[in-house]
């Protein structure tokens, strides 16, 4: 059974994704997501109960790097792309 994708669910997802969507886009995405999810339902035809999930194509595990200090960005370089800064810090809206 496909999940029913209604505007309330789309608004909830937008909230989680930190996106602001107008009503028109809510409707549009509700219908797009419904179509895509109806298509991916075909995965249910496959019995995967005994199949391990595969998150990665190569069998690389526990890649360690030596714990040695290397060069890092100068403060001004790190701040160069900040939309708001005061010369020393990133400026962000008050959190509390």
């Amino acid at each position: 059974m496909p999940v029913e994708i209604n505007p309330a669910l789309v608004r909830h997802i937008a909230e989680l994704a930190r996106l602001e969507l107008d009503d028109q886009l809510i409707q549009r995405l509700a219908s797009d997501l419904a179509e895509i999810l109806a298509y991916v339902e075909r995965l249910d035809e496959l019995d995967t109960e005994s199949v391990q999930p595969m998150a990665h194509a190569l069998d690389l595990t526990d890649v360690f790097a030596d714990d040695v200090p290397g060069p890092c960005l100068e403060r001004q370089e790190a701040l160069a792309n900040a939309p708001k800064k005061d010369g020393e810090f990133f400026l962000v809206p008050a959190v509390l």
Partner: peptide, 8 residues
Amino acid sequence: KALRVRRL
């Protein structure tokens, strides 16, 4: 589910 199918 998609990750399981990825292994297949």
